[in-house]
Amino acid sequence: MLGLIVVVCLLGVWNRFGQTSSTSRVVFPYGSLSVTAPSALRGGDLWSAVFTVAATRNIRHAVLVLDSGWANGMAINTIEPSPVSETSRDRGRLAFTLGPIAAGHSFTLYMQFQVNPTTVTWRRPQDVQLDDGNVVLASVPRTVTVYP
């Protein structure tokens, strides 16, 4: 029994139950998109996500589209810098218009969240997509697990 408790604690040290962030990055013809956020959380956790778009070619109308998993059961405390506009897309996705990003420049969006204490979920989709207008440029598949 004690061994089981020790194993659970060691799993905690190895970030099995959150909340250390990891970075996912995709490279596409217009640049790269990286997302840094934890993939495991617990009720009440304060956490942050960083989205970075590095453009190698001009992106005229960058739009960051977040899966509903980013908002469901979470309190969104801060979005910096504020997007040009915010709207909703199909399946409850959030679309943040970032505006133009010139070749050789990058855009970093910071978001702060808190998990609602009653939220419990297992591998909820939390994909991130970057569009140029209506054209999909890149997508980062992610999931998040919130432990009770």
Partner: peptide
Amino acid sequence: DDYSITGAVLIVGTFA
């Protein structure tokens, strides 16, 4: 700000 059962288990388990 952790209100989770998992968090409580980890802390009590670590102490024990």
